[in-house]
Design a binder for these strands. Structure first.
Lengths: 295, 295
DNA sequence: TTGATTCATAGATGGTATCTATGGTGAAAA
DNA sequence: TTTTCACCATAGATACCATCTATGAATCAA
């Protein structure tokens, strides 16, 4: 029916080397095989493509006509193969990473730096958004991998979740509230104080909402913030009790400008996780990146 | 070793139809065959090319990368096939014809006209030169076919010679030489008159040289011309006895402004022949053209 | 639930792509 | 001249793999 593309590759080499024997070597075939293949192609196209002689072969007019197109075709295919090889060997490529501010600041940045050093030709696209939006982007294929804070009880058959590090939220307060220091503070107690936390539609907030609800109370914060790194400064300025990732508060805790509340019911454990969409295969580049995070 | 080009054709169709089943139909293959082929290609390239779903398939990033090149490659190959088909179907092409002035004027022109009418897309390249140069051009592949006056005793293993028409040379004179009219003129007689013929390095001249020599005389013309159509006018103007193709003199013979000498030894028979180089295959177009001349 | 899509897998088979061996041919070297 | 060499074509055998049919699995719509 239609001519095998394979014969065009053979044709290309024969035309290029002007010699069937040489082309055969380049193609890892024998001379009769190539000869037969060209004969077949000539038959199917209904014209002679080469003039045979003892010095090799030369293109006829029809052969030249064919070669003008086939050479372009072959070179494009070789180009394509090279490009795929390049992406496989990480000398080219793109990873689109979705991350929350929290994971970006307190986990991802040093890895990104290392990865850039190791694979300078790979472009990194960081989509910084809140957890729900990032998950949505992952599902729709807009990003390849997400690095987010999660509780491991979340199950979604479409997502592959890999734990990377533990993560803690703490409740912190300034010395304005020193009456709470070294005391076991119940959730009910907390409700009597101004509370500072993240705005709705963030994982941190949803996590706290759930925590309060599971203890039969409702979280009604007095101050809602869009970025986690604003919580500690707010707390320092005596504006209330804040809930923040431990790492965001670490420095202030160390220099004693704020203190950690001891809650009668501990905040549940969270994890920083790498999440990928198992409906979309990960490119080699993305796999390499993930591998680095896991180790 | 190297990836079969055939799988790229399959890949192209699958990417184009975004559907393995549809691609299989277009390729006159079954769905499992195409599926298997794509799987093999993915394996060899070391990456996933398509996202499979129940609605069909979509390209991954690597797949898109590949498609950008492979689509160009495939389209070039299809273009090439179309062009070859076009030249085979005579809706495209070129014939390079070598002809002498004589054959062009008195044989070829009406055929060329007809051929153009029948195959308007075929370009005709006419190389008008003397016989030896035309034969050289034919042997070196500069022209596809030559239409020349020859004597059929010429043998050359590289050339295929086909007789197309008989051809006559005549000796003519004006009434200034009426003493020769209706007389049997010998070659020796001729030498006493001024002779007009073609310049050396033309078939006509070599033909006459041979004729004189075979009768133990030497042709020493008084006037040598480069073009055959000048001979009759020269003769008309009483400049001497001329040797010309009968057809060039026909009109003047009919209106009696010149007369034909009756030679004691007739000029040998000549033929208008089509000549092709049997070391180079004739294109379909050239074959068609030759066919027309023969019939 | 059923039926209609989709793609993947398994196993059988026949065609053909490939090989080796050989022949023919023309050019260059002996 | 004769020999040698490099090239391409042909013939015939064989093994591989491309392709097929049959089936499974998954998803979606009616």
């Amino acid at each position: 029916m239609s001519i095998s593309f394979e014969s065009y590759k053979v044709f290309y080499y024969v035309a290029k080397y002007k010699n069937i024997t040489a082309a055969a070597k380049a193609l890892f075939l024998t001379q009769p095989t190539v000869s037969h293949c060209i004969l077949g192609l000539e038959n199917e196209l209904g014209c002679t493509l080469f003039l045979r002689s003892q010095k090799g072969v030369t293109l006829t007019h029809e052969g030249l006509l064919l070669y003008e197109h086939v050479s372009i075709a072959c070179e494009h295919i070789f180009m394509a193969e090279d490009k795929i090889k390049a992406t496989n060997s990480l000398s080219e490529g793109l990873i689109r990473i979705g991350a929350s501010e929290t994971t970006l600041h307190h986990f991802l940045l040093p890895y990104l730096k290392d990865f850039r050093l190791m694979h300078s030709k790979i472009k990194l696209q960081i989509a910084n958004d809140n957890t729900p939006s990032t998950i949505a982007a992952l599902k729709s294929g807009l990003i390849d991998v997400a690095i987010l804070v999660m509780t491991l009880d979340e199950k979604d058959p479409d997502l592959t979740i890999t734990k990377l590090a533990s993560f803690h939220y703490v409740a912190i307060a300034s010395h304005e509230f020193s009456q709470l220091k070294d005391k076991l503070v119940s959730i009910k107690d907390l409700l009597g104080y101004p509370l500072i936390c993240m705005e709705p539609n963030t994982f941190t907030r949803q996590f706290l909402d759930k925590y309060f609800l599971s203890n039969n109370h409702e979280l009604k914060p007095d101050i809602e913030l869009a970025t986690a790194d604003l919580i500690t400064p707010m707390v320092k300025n005596d504006l209330g009790i804040g809930f923040a990732p431990y790492e965001f508060a670490a420095e202030s805790l160390n220099n004693d400008s704020v203190f950690k509340l001891t809650l009668s019911k501990e905040l549940p454990q969270c994890e920083i996780c790498a999440i990928s969409n198992n409906k979309r295969p990960l490119s080699i580049v993305s796999q390499t990146f993930l591998q680095m995070l896991i180790q």
